[in-house]
Nucleic acid binder design. Structure first.
Lengths: 83, 83
DNA sequence: TTGGTATATCGGGAAAAGTCGATATATTTG
DNA sequence: CAAATATATCGACTTTTCCCGATATACCAA
C-alpha cells in the first residue's frame, strides 16, 4: 500500500472520480486493489497513520490517505544512525 | 542485539577472555546479556544471519557473530528509494 | 427523518512469531 | 574413546499479529 501511494495516479486511476489526488486516495480505492475486506484495510491504514507513515484527511464521507514522506526519510536516517 | 553488536567492546567486556573481538562476539555472551535461553538466542542469531544483518564465523567450538554494516546501509537506501 | 454510502471499531478465529526445554551435533580435552 | 563445552535444531506451548464478519458511526441525499 505504501508503494502504491507513492504513485496514486498510476495505481488508483479511478480515484479521479472521487475528488482527485489532492488529499490522497480514499479507503475504498485501496481496499479494491488490496483484495482485502473493508475492515482490514481500514484498520491497516489507521495503524500506518498512527505510526506516522501516512496522513488522513476526512472530507465528507470519505477519508483520504496520503504518504508522509518525512517519516520515510526519518526511518531511513534512523537505521543509518541508531541501528 | 544489533545495537549491542555495534559496540562489542562496551557491551561484551568478557568477550576478551574468549578470543577478542576480531571475529565478533560468541553466542554465549549475547545469550547472557539478553536473558533468554540458549536455544532462543541461537535461533534468533541464525535468523539475523540469513537475513544478512550479521555474519557468522565458526572457530573451534565457538560461533562468532558480527554486524554486516553493508546490510544496514542497503536497508536504509532501500527505504529511501523503494518504499 | 429515512435510507444509502463510506469508514471505523469490535470480537473472535486462524496464522505466524516468540520462547522454551530437550536433544542433536560439533569440537576440545583428557 | 569419553566427558565437557558451545552451538544448533526440534517439537510444543504461548503470545502476538492478521484478517474476517458484524456492527457502529458519520455523512449525504431525497
Amino acid at each position: 500500500m505504501l508503494e502504491w501511494l507513492k504513485e496514486p495516479e498510476i495505481n488508483f486511476p479511478s480515484q479521479l472520480e472521487h475528488g482527485g489526488f489532492e488529499h490522497g486516495v480514499c479507503v475504498g480505492q485501496i481496499q479494491a486493489k488490496a483484495g482485502l475486506t473493508q475492515s482490514t484495510v481500514s484498520e491497516y491504514l489507521s495503524i500506518l497513520q498512527r505510526a506516522g507513515f501516512i496522513e488522513a484527511k476526512r472530507v465528507g464521507q470519505w477519508t483520504y490517505y496520503k504518504r508522509n514522506e518525512g517519516a520515510f526519510e526519518a526511518l531511513s536516517k534512523l537505521i543509518q544512525s541508531n541501528l
